[in-house]
Design a protein around this nucleic acid. Structure first.
Lengths: 214, 214, 214, 214
DNA sequence: CATGAATGAGTTTTCATTCAT
DNA sequence: CATGAATGAAAACTCATTCAT
């Protein structure tokens, strides 16, 4: 395991090794419990080199978050083809999401668990990624409405709520699917797709559950 | 006025103060970052007293989790009246859930973020509570099916998936509602209720979105 | 075990219980590792009472040393009958010594191990007891010389050395006999008696091993 | 002059300094009372460095025991010349023993007092060294018997008892010689040598003190 | 560039000891 | 008398971080 003791590698490669090690360590131990010693050792470099390239533990963690967030967004966006119908795009996007999180459990642990539990600087970083995903889902909802020849003037607040709930449910299900034996990415996607499509149909039909007067 | 340095309080009172301080500190700083010093100071007692009453940081954290989990379950169960129809019960339960989490943000942070990111002993504690909530939702789904004079032989796996997604979405929305200015517990509940009711209707109708052959 | 929760016992009894508990705890855990909490609990009294009666941990330990030292000296002196010949007295004294230390292992641990490893105040206390024993042995040696109609002008320094070596050997053998399965007090005494009697005979005969010029 | 705050020394040197400081501190204060702070300060380094090189207080103490035990055994074995007669070897060995313990009082305190009073892991370490010494003495006793043209079938148990008593007496006398003004290593060795030689002669002659019927 | 050597500041935890009731 | 409530002080140990070489 670990990197073989090779010398004089270009900086970019070294940095990648460090980030790999950091993601793994942060993902498994958590931000506070992970030690720079452990990360440096796993990366196969000396500690001062980590500091030279990545400044501090905080910066290192931030770099991890950014890299993993970008990778996730790229995977989701790259998983859909814009020329297909909206429902198919949503399906493909969910599939890509669950597949990516299942294949990068440490990265997902960082984004979902660690980054949000250690103060503003990190939480904000993840919030940015979440925004992108919510925006992406919102687009798809509106596209679906257009395709159904519905007036695009769906109530903005409800669309926002739907998108938010959908992303939130996806995040929860990702953890569940990762942890539960026998639940595949495809099954998780199917469960959620049904959920989402029903809610969306309801909304476009204008029919909804009416809360009591309270 | 305020918490003047009062001395010699009965043990039960002091323990409550300590737990209050601990919940707040753990919720805001995270398990590892929270220091026993800070907790003791916030509780207005010396550190040795915290150890005398609560043994260790681990035990203290566990005690926090238990108390907050019990309080949340009690709030949800106490928010519904079993003689009402199932949909009304679900609505009331969701309302109670969002209200309670909004009113106890630190407790919710502990349950949702901190406890799950710091190893088995803690995660298991929360998993117990989650099970109770999922079971509660599952009951309601089945009750709703009965009330609609549907055969109660809904596919178990789908009901489980629905309940899981619903609870997961609720958990995510709780954080969102807490963080987003202008989103009330009532609104969060409404969004989710619509979502849930549509999914449930779909399921009972047997209609669902069909994934492509892939 | 422990003392049954009885109230209002005379001070002397309470003190005895505390010393019993302290001897046991100090003997097994060592001076530093023994905690006042543990001692108080084992004695079946509250901690402040221990302080009321015995002042401090140091004083408590000193009291233990004194009691156990006195008991040991009393056992040895009480084990011999002055009207018997010197060799029989030595034999009986050694027997009493090994029997007592075997029957009071915690007390012996305090005297032999703990008291000597924790600084002057305690070491001095034990040194006193040792002096008594050495003096006792010296008496016997001189008595033996008299009985053998030897001039009592044996070289003082050699007598001192012999007594010292004898007591030292006895102390070491006590630990060895306590720890080694199958070595009884009687056997330990026999081994040492042979040793001693031979050395004594040698000395009285004036014959001794002569060191090289060096 | 003196130990000016010198920096950046090779690891081996620093380790030696730390062990020196630890032996001194443990020897004088005892295992529990010695603090890592004090040891680090006496060694002229920071505490983390002590932990970096020697892991824990337990490991540090074990390292001390090992070093001092090895040094003592080496001194004794190195003090004798195997080509000389057995009695001369015993004399030289005792001399080396008393000289070494007198010159390294802290090391001897660790071996004789501290290590044996603080639980198995440490006691076992010393027991090993003791075994070596007892074995060495046993060899010499048998050699002496051979030189005296005695049948080498001395009773094993008695030889063991003699060796044990001899080593025990030596250990006790070492403390006595260290503590008593005006008792040199040579004198201690002479006292014990007489003792031993007489006992040995007795044993080879088959004559011994006979305990009363009891 | 790369690294072995080094540390300041902080962590959890324990313990002897004292009062107010 | 007896005790539950409370703490100051210090212990072992860890970690992010920096230089001199």
């Amino acid at each position: 395991m670990g990197a073989v003791k090779t010398k004089r590698m270009p900086r970019a490669v070294r940095e990648r090794q460090m980030l790999d090690a950091a993601v793994r360590t942060f993902g498994q131990r958590g931000y506070r419990s992970a030690s720079m010693d452990e990360i440096a050792e796993l990366a196969g470099v000396s500690k001062p080199l980590v500091y030279l390239y990545l400044n501090s533990k905080e910066d290192l963690f931030t770099a991890c978050i950014r890299r993993e967030a970008a990778a996730l967004v790229k995977a989701v966006r790259g998983g859909v083809r814009p020329e297909l119908p909206a429902d198919r795009q949503l399906w493909d996007g969910l599939g890509a999401f669950f597949t990516h999180t299942a294949e990068h459990p440490d990265g997902w642990a960082i984004l979902h668990f660690q980054a949000r539990t250690h103060g503003e600087p990190f939480a904000a970083e993840v919030a940015g990624m979440r925004c992108e995903l919510v925006a992406f889902v919102t687009e798809l909802i509106l596209a679906a409405a257009r395709e159904a020849h519905r007036d695009p003037d769906l109530p903005a607040r409800e669309v926002a709520g739907l998108a938010e709930a959908l992303v939130g449910a996806a995040e929860s299900l990702a953890a569940w699917a990762n942890a539960t034996e026998g639940v595949s990415a495809r099954q998780a996607a199917a469960t959620l797709m049904n959920f989402a499509w029903a809610g969306l149909g309801n909304m476009m039909r204008g029919s909804s559950w009416t809360p009591p007067a309270a």
